[in-house]
Design a protein around this nucleic acid. Structure first.
Length: 265
DNA sequence: ATGGCCAATATCATTGGA
């Protein structure tokens, strides 16, 4: 089974690109971020026509996440616990029946946090703390869990083309990386890093300043796995070629292949 | 960080993104 995360940067503007990739890759579950639409605006029909169930947690204009899956989830929960007043749609959780038990998949869009001097950076750190507590509670279930999303975190210097440029950025500040490492400390595994030590593994290239042709990328989209999911991880890949398509998102899909099978219903 | 970006809004400019 293949499970992917992709910041689509506007699902309505990107529907042709999304369909082309779904047809090419045929993933079983896809976590989307920055759908930039309310639930009613999601181009649901086109995706359902390809055989996917669509779960959305949208928002007008910005943010918004969705989970596409080749089977219907048993349970879907909107929003990240820890702050019922948070108006931003950045988290969606789905539970699936697989052979041998349950598979829990979360689509998350972690706040960017720039500019660092603004209220946005404390919001990012507080959100990471909420994610930490959520992960802790779910890890206690000792089930396969995949926290898939745009983390807006460059974990290490070799996850970008030039760490010097990013040193004061909310994506790379020591405090940001420490919060990410604390997630790993809980027992979550960074799937791409678990399967490759290579440098130059990027998932985002800015639209500006020729970042794509110059390969000035960063790795900020991650599949974080509970031990029960990491045990079943077979391989990962980053569909970098999608960044070169017509009307690309500035992010590309990150895919994990797992030894899971949906339970027949 | 930036060589000249991109999406959404009810827009002809601003905001947010990374």
């Amino acid at each position: 089974m293949e499970i992917a995360t992709w910041n689509i940067n506007g699902v309505r503007a990107r529907i042709e690109t999304l369909i082309a990739w779904l047809k090419e890759a045929g993933p079983d579950i896809v976590c989307l971020q920055e759908i930039k639409t309310v639930d009613e605006g999601f181009p649901r029909g086109e995706i359902e026509a390809l055989g996917y169930h669509v779960a959305t947690h949208g928002q007008k204009g910005f943010n918004g996440v969705a989970i596409l899956s080749k089977t219907t989830p048993d349970e879907v929960t909107n929003g990240l616990a820890g702050d019922p007043e948070d108006p931003q749609s950045r988290f969606l959780e789905a539970v699936y029946s697989i052979e041998g038990g349950a598979l829990r998949v979360c689509a998350l869009y972690l706040p960017n946090g720039n500019p660092v001097g603004s209220e946005k950076y404390p919001y990012k750190l507080a959100w990471m703390e909420r994610l930490h507590r959520f992960a802790e509670s779910r890890l206690a279930l000792e089930e396969p869990l995949i926290l898939a999303g745009d983390y807006n975190v460059i974990p290490h210097g070799h996850d970008c083309w030039n760490p010097e440029v990013w040193k004061d950025d909310a994506l790379f500040l020591p405090q940001t990386r420490a919060a990410f490492q604390a997630l790993e400390g809980l027992g979550l595994t960074d799937a791409v890093r678990a399967t490759s030590d290579a440098t130059g593994l990027y998932t985002f290239w800015d639209y500006q300043a020729g970042a794509w042709p110059k390969n000035y990328g960063i790795r900020i989209d991650h599949l974080m796995l509970s031990p029960e999911a990491a045990d079943r991880l077979l391989e990962t890949r980053i569909d970098k070629h999608v960044r070169g398509w017509e009307k690309p998102s500035d992010h590309v899909p990150v895919i994990g292949r797992f030894d899971f099978r949906f339970r027949e219903r």
